[in-house]
């Protein structure tokens, strides 16, 4: 019995399946995520990593099984409640998904605006986060004028500005050069060390050594191994 098993899970997946028409994208996925976990979901392209994350942030419906987040069964969440669940997450994408017509400051502020925040206090908070990710000098820049690494740092700022309990990162270093990927990983580690739970989909095994995390290996939609510190648990 490990220390983790004594704690309550903040995300639980029970026999989760995802089908696109007749094709199974994910089959029988079961695992728990605990507070302050750093979980890598690893697998080749098409293994179902992104689909799994999408189901957690409710961008894809669950075909079978259950995902429980904070005690709520995501399959039974009414459409109107979805935004409130998503506010519990910070989401980072491989392609950054920043709004090109908004400045860096506006992109990050959006997360707080949707929660009803506004004014100088909000601006101070956003500027503080942008300083943390090293983008304080690009507040009024538009995303298309930034490098990939800079855009991803803005995306990280956007993900963490709302102080989410969980960060879902879908290949956050996938489209970055080595140095930029390092910066992104440093930032994620930093937020993890402050207590944030991180679930990161990646195909890059070299990232595992950086963090004391757990690795979920997916292959063709099936959970193959679930290891901690590279030691097979189950």
């Amino acid at each position: 019995m490990t220390e983790k098993n004594d704690r309550a899970a903040i995300i639980r997946l029970f026999h989760v399946c995802k089908r696109f028409k007749d094709k199974a994208a994910l089959a029988d996925i079961t695992f728990d995520v605990y507070k302050n976990d750093f979980i890598f979901i690893h697998g080749p392209s098409g293994a179902g990593k992104s689909t799994l994350l999408k189901m957690i942030y409710l961008a894809e419906p669950i075909s079978e099984g259950q995902i429980i987040v904070g005690g709520m069964n995501l399959s039974r969440i009414p459409r109107k409640k979805i935004p409130f669940i998503r506010r519990e997450y910070g989401i980072i994408f491989q392609d950054f998904r920043l709004i090109p017509s908004k400045t860096v400051l506006e992109n990050v502020s959006l997360v707080l605006e949707v929660k009803g925040n506004s004014g100088k206090a909000m601006q101070r908070k956003v500027k503080g986060i942008l300083k943390t990710v090293g983008m304080e000098n690009k507040l009024n820049a538009y995303p298309p004028t930034l490098s990939g690494g800079e855009q991803q740092r803005v995306a990280i700022a956007r993900a963490v500005v709302g102080e989410p309990k969980i960060i879902l990162a879908d290949e956050p270093t996938g489209s970055l050069d080595h140095d930029s990927a390092d910066i992104v990983m440093d930032l994620l580690e930093k937020f993890h060390s402050h207590g944030t739970t991180i679930i990161m989909a990646t195909h890059d095994e070299s990232l595992f050594n950086r963090v004391n995390g757990r690795v979920i290996r997916l292959q063709e939609g099936h959970l193959k191994t679930f290891s901690e510190n590279e030691e097979l648990m189950q």
Binding site: Y57, A59, K80, P83, F84, R86, R87, I91, R97, L98, I99, S101, K102, L110, V111, E113, V114, K115, R158, G162
Partner: peptide, 16 residues
């Protein structure tokens, strides 16, 4: 369209 999708992903309600 993309902007609206991003807004939804960061938790914007339909009324927002």
């Amino acid at each position: 369209r993309e902007e609206i999708e991003i807004m939804r992903l960061v938790g914007a309600s339909e009324s927002f």
